[in-house]
Design a protein around this nucleic acid. Structure first.
Lengths: 182, 182
DNA sequence: TATTGTTATACTCTATAACTATA
DNA sequence: TATAGTTATAGAGTATAACAATA
C-alpha cells in the first residue's frame, strides 16, 4: 500500500490578496529543507503495489491542481463542492456530504466561506423546510467556467506523458477499482 | 481534480488489544450517520478528471488496507516505513523522510513507536556519527513477512475486477503520471 | 557553515456529541 | 421518532522554528 508522499493538501494560509500572486512559489514539496541530495532508496517493492502507485499519482495531480487553482483561491474540496453545485443546482448539504464524504459539521464552514465570497447562495428547499438548496451565483458560474477550463488544462499537463488513449484507459481502470462490483 | 472522499486515513484510536478484533467493524465510511439513502448526485463531470478517479481508487485501496492491516496494528505510514527498512537495511531517518515525504519532526514519533514495539532497532551509522541506521529486528522481519503477504492479498482483492494484464497496465500508466519526465 | 535528529508548538483536517427546527 | 443543518470541541495529521551533536 501507499504512504504519505506529499500529503499536505493545503497551501499555507495567506490573505486572499497575497494568494493571487506567485502561486507556484508557495507550493512546497512539503518535505526536507530542500537540502542536498540524499542517497536514493530502493522503492521497488512499494512500486509493485497498486495502492502505492495510485496514491503517488493522485498526489502528483493534486500538487499541480493546488498550484494552478491558487489564483482562484480554490482548494480541491472547494472546487469539488462548486463543481457539484454547478452540475446539480439546488443540491443540499446532505447530498454534498454524501457525494464528497465530508462530515456535515465540516461542510458548514466550507459552504459559509463560499457564500461569503458570493460564489454560491442558498435558497429554501422547495419541498423540505429543513433543507437549503445550494446554487451558484452568476459570479460563481463565471468563476467555475474558468476553473473547470483550468482543471482540464492542468489535467492534460499533469498527464502529458500519456496519450489520449492511455488517459482513457487509465480512467476506465481506476473506475473499475473503486466502483462497487454491482 | 479530486475531493475528499473518505480521507480519514486512520482507524479510531483504541487499545492495542482491542485492535486485534473485528477490524472491519471499526472502519467507517467516515461520513453520514449511515442513515437512509440520499438522492444520488450527478458526478459525471468529476469522473472525467484523472485526479478525481486516481484519488477515489487510492482511497478505496487504502480503506481495504486499513481493515486488513488492523490485526498487525500497522497504519499505511507504518507499513511504508517498515517496508523501506526491510528492503534498505541501515536506512537513515533522513532517507525515510525523503522517500516518504514525511517531515523529520513527524517521523520521530513513528520511529519511536515502532522501536518501542520491538519491530526496529537503531544502530550507530558506520560512517556518520550524527545519523542512526534503522534495521528490522527478528520480530520486525517476522511481522513484515506476514504483512507484505497480506498487502499482496489485499491488493488482489481490492483490484479483483481487473485482470492481471489490466493491473499491470494500470501500474504502468500510474507510474507515467508521477514519474518526472526524465 | 551545514546536516542529522530532536523538542516544542502551531495550524489544518477530520471526527464525535449534542442541539434546533422541521418531517 | 428521524433527518437537515448547526455549534462546540476533541483528536489526528502536517507544518515551522530552534536547538544539540556531529560533519
Amino acid at each position: 500500500m501507499a504512504l504519505n508522499l506529499l500529503k499536505k493538501t493545503a497551501l499555507p494560509t495567506k490573505s486572499p490578496a497575497a494568494k493571487l500572486k506567485s502561486a507556484s512559489a508557495r507550493v512546497r514539496k512539503v518535505d526536507l529543507p530542500e537540502a542536498g541530495p540524499v542517497e536514493p532508496v530502493d522503492t521497488s517493492y512499494l512500486r509493485t503495489l497498486v495502492g502505492y502507485n495510485a496514491r503517488r499519482a493522485s498526489l502528483a495531480i493534486i500538487e499541480t491542481f493546488m498550484v494552478r487553482m491558487a489564483p482562484y483561491d480554490l482548494k480541491v474540496v472547494d472546487f469539488s463542492v462548486l463543481s457539484l453545485v454547478a452540475h446539480n443546482p439546488g443540491i443540499t448539504s446532505r447530498q454534498l456530504c454524501a457525494a464528497l464524504n465530508v462530515l456535515p459539521p465540516n461542510l458548514v464552514g466550507l459552504i459559509a466561506a463560499l457564500e461569503r465570497r458570493g460564489l454560491i447562495e442558498r435558497l429554501p428547499h422547495p419541498s423540505d423546510g429543513r433543507a437549503m438548496g445550494v446554487h451558484l451565483t452568476p459570479q460563481g458560474m463565471e468563476l467555475m467556467v474558468q476553473a473547470e477550463k483550468t482543471a482540464f488544462d492542468l489535467e492534460m499537463d499533469a498527464t502529458s506523458r500519456l496519450t489520449d488513449a492511455e488517459r482513457k484507459t487509465l480512467i476506465r481502470l481506476l473506475q473499475k477499482v473503486y466502483t462497487p462490483v454491482d
